[in-house]
């Protein structure tokens, strides 16, 4: 993987087929929503890969912690990866 570990970008920028490590979830997101993303497996330090995008570009299916979960851009832009 050639993603530099020093820079963080949002999960919405992760290309299909690529993997990254979840860095953090943006605090601007509602606390309940952050907690929900966490229990769904979007835990800092976890490996995540983008599996595919739905037609028209949204949502995207991710593989994280052994599950396949799809999220919309409106949430993935708040999940930071490195």
């Amino acid at each position: 993987m050639n993603i530099e570990t020093t820079t963080t970008l949002s999960l919405s920028h992760l290309h299909i087929g690529q993997s990254a490590t979840i860095d953090s979830i943006d605090l601007r997101l509602d606390a309940k929503v952050r907690e929900r993303l966490l229990v769904l497996g979007f835990v800092p330090g976890s490996l995540i890969s983008a599996v595919r995008r739905a037609p028209f570009g949204d949502p995207t299916e991710f593989e994280v912690r052994g599950s396949r979960i799809s999220l919309r851009k409106s949430e993935t832009q708040f999940i930071l990866i490195s």
Binding site: D30, V33, L40, I69, S70, L71, R72
Partner: peptide
């Protein structure tokens, strides 16, 4: 909408 869309396949 307050809560996000998430779905497990």
């Amino acid at each position: 909408a307050t809560f996000p869309f998430y779905m497990e396949l």
